[in-house]
Every structure is written in structure tokens, then in C-alpha cells.
Nucleic acid binder design. Sequence first.
RNA 1: UGGGGAGUGGCCAAACUGGUAAGGCACCUGACUCUGGAUCAGGGGAUUGUAGGUUCGAAUCCUACCUCCCCAGCCA
Length: 563
Amino acid sequence: MDTSPPPSDFIRDIIAADIASGRYGGRVVTRFPPEPNGYLHIGHAKSICLNFGIAAENAGAVCHLRFDDTNPAAEDMEFVESIKADLRWLGFDWGEHLYFASDYFDRLYEYALRLIELGYAYVCDLSSEEVRANRGTLTEAGNDSPYRERSIAENLDLFARMKAGEFDNGSRTLRAKIDMASPVIVMRDPVLYRIQKMPHYRAGGTWSIYPMYDFAHCLSDSIERVTHSLCTLEFADNRALYDWVLEKLEIPSPPRQIEFARLNLSHTVMSKRILRCLVDEGHVDGWDDPRMPTISGMRRRGYPPSAIRKFCEGVGIARSYNLVQAEQLEAAVREELNRSAPRVMGVLDPLRVVIENYPEGPGEEFEAINNPEDDSAGTRKVPFSRVLYIEKADFMEDPPRKFYRLAPGREVRLRYAYFITCIEVIKDEQGEVVELRCSYDPESYGGNSPDGRKVKATLHWVSAAHAVEAEFRLYGRLLKEADPATAGAAEDMSQLIDPESLRCVAACPVEPGLATAVAGTVYQFERIGYFCVDRDSAPGTPVFNRTVGLRDTWARMQKAGKG
RNA sequence: UGGGGAGUGGCCAAACUGGUAAGGCACCUGACUCUGGAUCAGGGGAUUGUAGGUUCGAAUCCUACCUCCCCAGCCA
């Protein structure tokens, strides 16, 4: 199916080298570790494609799905289900390897006890404010906690009582005893456990202490015998702590953390916080609004999973900051959809056309090709009659030289139907063109040209008498600015939303076969773009979301002033 | 400012132990076409952050400097 060469990048190079050197006995185990506190987005897809891709490319390798659920305040079952669904939709399979950090709470607690016994951790009674005050700054060393030298026995006792729920939230923490003067701030006696008397969505109410990321993550990796723990660049400093914990606990064959640059996409944001805000404040229609960079949003928009995978592959894996242009994603979407989407006809901005020499009555049917890129897609019948709709933009009364379409006295082809010539233009009192009177050439039946006569343009059309009325939701890019970071984003994201990102058009005539279009199907409306049937559709009243427009050379010429 | 990371055409991104700058997206031209779509062919555009140095030869090595990103949550 996919004949392209396997992707290559510095991480795959490292893994290949580790396999060659026998570092992990030739094993390769990666993992995708989402926190179930939000929906997956295209940035996660990059990580997913990397981790699952590596597993797929190496014989015997696997990729685990592990929910990093160590913070009961934010996490929820709704998110684990949505994440699993998105992952499956993207085409990835974790097989038996579904894990939860919360399943390791007992073992993690044992490890913490061990660290205390080894003299590498202590219970600290400082408040969070005091800890912060003692941490120092980027240029000044921090101060040791007054509780740093407690005896092992006292630490053990206090930690057990923290677990037993004897102390209030925030009153104590378990801290690693490392170095308050470390230039790496994450190493200044980081908190390992905090008291948080709150039921966990999976572990229930049995815990009053929960492990922090830096403690839980590396150990979860080692428990699962992960070999390569791939994460984004902002965790590079944390690697020192990752390695420290595993070293002090004498974990054999410790997993290796490797960082890569996260994905940034133009005209959107990846921040979960900001996305949540857009949803909560009603600026978008939920997490799966077709403008959202979420996987569920892209699904509703009509982006095929294969396009998302192809895009991630095309973007590559590196360590430098990047801002990938939305065009690159859209190109991947068009490439996939061009091959797979069935073609249909519909008119977004209708102009009435009457074929004067065509008989009144039911008309006739023409055979249309469903997908010129795929013969197996077959053909369908499209009804034709005396009164039709064409696109307003396909007619100009006084056309510029490069305009190929219909104009007074000019002949064009109606796709799959006939050649027609405009013989009269009818206007209303305002001078607006409201109807075209045309004649057709019966010899051009089916759109053919028996005498070899050429026309410059082929237009799409819909028979007025047979048309079904559809709603179109024309989606564009979410934000006005390519890079919201440089646009003073922080304050009010909603100000940056492009008002053009959604335009709804009602009562658009489309070919009758679309009356019962099934939600989720993506069609190419010929000469317009790709559209996905929205779940808001009902029989007889379909709703189409614009996935992405077709490449439009004429529009670009106009924009460039070359029209 | 301490630590960490990064700077290669408009945007991504290759170039293994120095050998004379892949590819994709975007852009332009032409061919073809019953989608101004698709496809095909061709094209423009990089003194590889800057300045020095080593070398027959440097994006790759050395030195200095500049710019950008990340870290001071009991978030992940």
C-alpha cells in the first residue's frame, strides 16, 4: 500500500544504533503517554506517528499507550475514552499494551520508600510559597530546607502518615535530596509527592498523596521496560532528574529519554489551556469544531487519518523550533482526498439558467463519473432539465480577457450534459443579473463535441426541478495571524479568531443523490472543494462542512491582479 | 544574567567518519485535460546566524560574537 521509504530522523538513527550495539538486547519499546485531561490535537499526532511508527518499523518492537494520570484534579474518564477513540481513528493499535500510571501507585510508593531509606528523599514541611522562596533564581542558588536532614526513620514515619491522610493538603511534600545549588533548577530538591486529598477517577479514594510527573514518568517507563522515551524539548532539563531517579533506585537497563521539537502549525494554537478557553467561552462549537486543531475537529472537518499521518511524516522530526504552514497540512489532505473522494455537483451561489430550446418536462439523465482517479468508483445518473442553476461566479457580462467561462454570446460545456450558449441576460431593477437565457446544442449530448469544436470552460450545474437544498459551512483557518505567539496572543484569544473562519450558506442546490448523504462521507464538489457530511445532516437536508477548497488558479490570478 | 536547546531558500527538512548544499510544501512557466481540479515536463530562489581561523577543500572542525526558544507549579 505505502511504497514510500520509511522515514528517517535523528531519533530513528539513535534507535538503529542502539539495536546494532545491543544496548537493550535489541528490544525497542516506545510509548505514547497522554494525560487524560483534554483532547488530542495535531501536535499529539506528531508524537503518536513517531512512537507508533517506530514500533511498526522495527521487528518485534511495540508502542505502549499509557495514561499519565497522576493528577486527580484534572483527569477524567471522558478524556481517556476520547483519546483511545482518536488513536484508533488515526489508525494505531496498542494491542495488549494499555497502561495507566495510576495502576503503578503502589509500586511507585514502594520506590519512594526505597529512596527515603537510601537517604535520597525527605519529607519537607515547607508550604509551596516557602519552597518557592527557597528555590533561588536562575542566577542564585537556593537554600536548603530546614527539614532536609531529618532522620530516615522520621521520614519513613511522616511519609506513611502522609499516605494515611493524617495531614492537610499542601502541608508537607516528599522531596528528593539532590542539590539546592544546582544550575539545573529541576534538580533543586524537586517535589516527588504532594498531599492531595481528592478521589482519583480510577484509583478511587484510596490515596491522599499523588506522585509528581518527574517521579512517576521515569519509573512508569522502567516498569514497562520502555527502551526509548520520546518527549518534547521542554522536558530536556527534566532528563537530569529522569536519569537521577533511575540511577539512585538502581534500575537496570534504564530507558533513554530523547527530546524532539513539538509541532507548531500556522493560524492555530496547540495550547490545551487556550483551546479549552475557546470551547468554554463558546467561541467554537465544542472540541470537535471543524476549525479546531484537535483530532476530533479534523475528523469532523473531513481530514482523512491517512492525510494526517502523511503530514506528520512530511514534517519530520528535528530539534529546532518550527512553525509549519497550514498549506502543508492542506496539501496532504487534498492529495489523499483527490484519490478517494467521490465527485458530485452542487452550486453554492446559484444563478438561474433557462435553456430556451430545451423542451419543458422531466428532462433526461446523464451519466457522471464518480471518481476520475478511481475507475472502480463507477458512475451515477444526474438529472438534467430546462431550468438549471450554475455558479454566479461562472458568468460575467463583460469578462476580462483571461475569463474562460460563460459570457453573452459565448459557448461553454455543462459537465456531462451539453454545450450551451448565452443568448440573453436578464436583470432586476437594481441591474443585478438574475437569470440567463441560453440555447443548447443537441449534438453535444453528454458533453461531447462530435465536430471537434472546443469550449474554454466546463461548468458544474444542478437541475432546478430535481435539486435538493443543502446547507454549506465554509470553514477557513481559525486565526487571522499565522503565528499567534507574535500577535500578543495571551490576553484574549477570541480577538484573534478570524471572522471568516466560518461562513454558512443555506439552501444551496445540490444533485438529488445527496439527499441521503451519510455523515462523515467526504465528497468533492466539482470545481469547488472537498466537503464532509456533517452529523447535523438529516435525510433531505444535508449539511456539508468544507474540508478544504480545490486549488483555484483563476482565483489566484484574480488575487494577483492578473485577471 | 545560571543551566538546557536551536539557528540551512518564504515554510518544514536532509547532508553517516570535512569533498564542493537532497526532498516536501509554496511560487513561476509550458504540455495535457469534459473539474482553470488532477497529471506530466521544466524553472527561479541558499555566499548554510555573523566574524575570524584550520584545511587543497568546511553546513560539517576550532574561536569569538549575535539572535531565538525552554526552565524558578505541591501541572504534565
